[in-house]
Write a protein that binds this DNA or RNA. Sequence first.
DNA 1: ACCGACGATACCGCCCAGGTATCGATCCCG
DNA 2: CGGGATCGATACCTGGGCGGTATCGTCGGT
Lengths: 282, 282
Amino acid sequence: METRELRYFVAVAEELHFGRAAQRLGIAQPPLSRAIQQLERRLGAALLDRTSRTVTLTEAGSVLLAEGRAALDAVDAADRRTRRAALAATGRPGLVLAAKAGASSELLAKLLDAYAAEPGAVPVDVTLCGPAEQERLLREGRADVALLHRPFDSTAGFHTAELSTESQVVVLPAGHPLTVRAHVHMADITALPGLPLPRWPDPDGAYPPGPGPQVRDHAQLLQLIALGRACTLSPESCRAQLHGDLAAVPVLDAPTVTTVIAWPPHSRSRAVADLIRTATRL
Amino acid sequence: METRELRYFVAVAEELHFGRAAQRLGIAQPPLSRAIQQLERRLGAALLDRTSRTVTLTEAGSVLLAEGRAALDAVDAADRRTRRAALAATGRPGLVLAAKAGASSELLAKLLDAYAAEPGAVPVDVTLCGPAEQERLLREGRADVALLHRPFDSTAGFHTAELSTESQVVVLPAGHPLTVRAHVHMADITALPGLPLPRWPDPDGAYPPGPGPQVRDHAQLLQLIALGRACTLSPESCRAQLHGDLAAVPVLDAPTVTTVIAWPPHSRSRAVADLIRTATRL
DNA sequence: ACCGACGATACCGCCCAGGTATCGATCCCG
DNA sequence: CGGGATCGATACCTGGGCGGTATCGTCGGT
């Protein structure tokens, strides 16, 4: 199976429309039809049910869509990492580390300092990104290593090492009645009148339905909380970043958050190994 | 990057010889040389250092070898799983479960029974395989789900759920002096005179150097132990399979073994989900 | 019943993968 | 030190397959 065929199939499976898929791929529709037919013949499996009006995925088609996306990701990652390795041999760019913006910043700072002090350390580019985006960056080969937060981020497909665990606090507007409490429980905050939990975008950029304001980043969320329009659960360490009009109260029965450092399996690179060793020794 | 190019590069990188690689690929040498050159040009990176006598990998080349193998595995897995999904839609074969031969057999039996009793259960093919082989089967798409044993098997790249943990025992010939002890420590068995720990083959089939007999499967190992030529650490549950001329003694400070059920991420299949749910409820 | 939308088919041209022949460089051996 | 052997690169040719245009067959909608 060639990656070209896979890309073609994924495009059609996503669009469920040969014409649009062909347009997206920058080719004409007939070659696309033929390529899919050939792929089906070679696999000995019908991937799409097509009438002259609609295209739908068969069971085998959905399997190939999921598996094919993963395979294409792996191929693209191989491409990018190879290019980066070639650059690293000649020029500047060292490691790329992906971290969620506004999370674990002290840990991140300590890690970068400690690694920079190592003999043979290479420059580290830090890519701050939105929630759950690190996973994609790592999978696609745009980053060499990432800081993830269990149980929020999925660590499937990566090697990981635990760095720290912390409990969670609820972040509230300063002066909110609950802020006088020494601690609260989940039940106290799930149904706070007028202070819903926010909605984060899906990996594909869409927002889940439900109440609560839509937010894209931490700064936006903190501002909403300060305005008294939301509250949120956050790892304890976020307290360092709260300013005057926000308050945090420990939530006793919230799940603890584990910060892990994750990297793709197959890392032959000494730099990645050094960084991870440094991280686990912190 | 096309899979054809990747396969070509991996062949050359493994053989470090264009002629042999071309032979292995079933093509002539000149097209292979050209394909590699074109790949290097497109990546903008030298992958191989070649004199007219020797071929060696560059830094970028080793990265592409590791990443490319993984990517090719992913593509092949997509191929196999799609074919299997197509068959499943029409004919017999249901799920394929990979398990280490001779390990966790009671747990496996319980799992299969419990799953078979579920509504909508499909037939399960059990593939018994050598140590550490389940990982490969799962990665290559030859199996849908596997039973792995931490910390021996790597679970990188898979989703996992813990099924059970057990402590380890040392398996000795019946009548060995140590068998009268209620328990032993690691120090007691690492240097047993005349009873070395066996050597298992690497994933590539080679044996690590060192003392100890080379073994390929459990039956062979148990026979060697009965003959007084080896001893081994094993999860407690192996006791059920020991016959008269073998004895087991708990090892207090051996690492505990966790049996986990593992499956590839992206499993859209209801059958896999059902099996896993059944397993975690055991 | 006609028109429009959409996927399939027919046919054509060109690019590129693969083959053969050969070259150039390097190592080995006498 | 020179000749042969080994091995990768180059030159040149051929054919298959990919992509393009034109068109058909089949549905739905009005």
